[in-house]
Computed example of a mutant assay.
Amino acid sequence: MTNTFPQIPPVAMPKVIPSEFPQQRFHLGEWVRWFQVPNGDFGRVIGVIYTQQASCIATGLHYLVLLDERSPSREICICDFAFEDDIESLEKSSLEGLRGNHV
């Protein structure tokens, strides 16, 4: 049997590193949800990275989100990256509603 290793996407350093990075809209520990899709996932921000065209289609801040145990995609992935324009903050009442709607 042949050993197979997962492929790592190519990584390229940008030719010019920005002198300033955008201000974060979301912070570590903050609850967020994907709002542009039906039954969007939700969870807590656990990381932030900045990407440029060399490694990602969308340049800017991307947030690593630990999906809540009741988030729709949790059975197939524990964490997911979200582009800043695809997520929004969750207030406590909205979070409780989402947790109650997904069994």
Rank of each mutant, 00 (worst) to 15 (best):
T2A: 12
T2Y: 11
T2G: 09
N3Y: 15
N3V: 14
N3W: 15
P6S: 09
P6A: 08
Q7E: 15
Q7C: 06
Q7A: 08
Q7F: 10
I8W: 07
P9I: 03
P10R: 10
P10Q: 12
P10G: 06
P10D: 13
P10K: 10
P10T: 11
V11T: 06
V11Y: 11
A12M: 08
A12F: 08
M13Y: 11
M13F: 08
P14D: 01
P14N: 06
K15F: 09
K15P: 03
I17T: 12
I17S: 07
S19I: 05
S19R: 09
S19N: 11
F21Q: 04
F21G: 04
P22T: 11
P22E: 12
Q23F: 04
Q24G: 05
Q24P: 14
R25E: 15
F26A: 01
G29N: 05
W31M: 02
W31E: 05
V32S: 03
R33F: 05
R33K: 14
W34P: 01
W34H: 10
F35C: 08
P38C: 09
N39Y: 12
D41I: 07
F42V: 00
F42A: 01
F42E: 00
F42Q: 01
G43M: 02
G43F: 01
R44G: 02
R44H: 13
V45Q: 01
V45C: 03
V48E: 06
I49K: 09
I49C: 07
I49H: 02
Y50V: 00
Y50A: 00
T51E: 10
T51Q: 14
Q52W: 00
Q52V: 04
Q53T: 09
Q53D: 03
A54G: 05
A54L: 04
S55N: 14
S55P: 00
C56D: 13
I57Q: 13
A58H: 14
G60C: 07
G60W: 03
H62G: 10
H62A: 12
L64K: 09
L64Y: 09
L64R: 07
L66M: 09
L67F: 08
L67P: 10
D68C: 01
E69R: 10
E69V: 06
R70E: 03
R70S: 10
S71D: 02
P72K: 02
P72Y: 04
E75H: 14
I76G: 04
I78S: 04
I78T: 09
F81M: 07
A82H: 14
A82S: 15
A82R: 12
F83A: 09
F83T: 07
E84I: 04
E84F: 04
E84Y: 05
D85M: 11
D86T: 09
D86H: 11
I87S: 03
I87M: 09
E88S: 11
S89L: 08
L90W: 01
L90R: 00
E91P: 02
E91L: 11
E91Q: 15
K92V: 10
S93G: 02
S93M: 07
S93Y: 13
S93A: 08
S93H: 12
S93R: 07
S93T: 10
S94Y: 08
S94E: 15
L95M: 03
G97L: 08
G97K: 11
G97V: 07
L98K: 07
L98P: 02
R99A: 03
G100Q: 15
G100A: 15
N101V: 06
N101R: 11
H102L: 04
V103W: 14
V103A: 15
